[in-house]
Amino acid sequence: MKTPDWTDLNAYVDGELRPDAAAEIAARIAADPAVAAQVATLARLKAATAAALSPASAEVPEIRLGRGVRGPGWRRHGARAAAAAVLLVVALGLGQWLWPRPDAVQAWLQQATERHAQWLAAERDPAPIAPPAIRPADAPDGPSWIPDLALARLAVAHVAATKSNGRPELYVGYVGVNGCRLGLWIGPAPARLAASLAEHRDGDVTSFTWRAGDIGYAVMARGMDEARLRAVAAYLETATRQSLDESGETEVARRPAAAADAPCIG
């Protein structure tokens, strides 16, 4: 009977050997104290390693896996976002805008990136909107489609609802823990805006656009890791589609006009 090598002993401790090979090593353990000692050491090491690498439950970061801000979560983004979103979605639901020209996608995206640039220029050190200051006055069950990016460690720092030619648009600025800034533009989709995720580059600004129903979305950032931005965009695309699938926007569009008049706070 040959002495089992170190690799075989490891496989034995891990239960990875075929039955005949395992039986051979078991016999060797019974006959050779040196082999038995090695196996005992490996077993002890394996158990200690599992314990050493297991993080304490309190240490595991909390990650919310919800796809959008719903119910209580909506309150964190506050009345400004609530009022702006309600206003936007109600207006979108009315369908009172003109369809843009076929070549309007680039112009639409340019408008979005310019809005993003304005925010970057205006707020050199944006801070997340403090929850106590933005508690909604009248939006207990607000629309669910303003995405919560806490998952990607991005917090809402800026919300602005605007109108262009009578068409409502919404810009949401997010700030990351390391200062990176990401903009989300929501507005009536131009006619040729692709439904699937499309990447655009303009200088050092990278953008991703998509369409969910009649609403167009653009997410953009300057100098952000592209893979990270793409992942966030893909997440947003999924979240906005699911929101649409659940008829969230349609439902919100039918809310009483009073809800759309909720005042902006802060």
């Binding site: 970061p61 998952l151 999924t238």
Partner: peptide
Amino acid sequence: SLTGDRELSQDLLQDCAVRVLS
């Protein structure tokens, strides 16, 4: 175990969650 750094690990887990859900 990969990063040896708690902050990096939290970022990694967050990005993983985003990738999985998207």
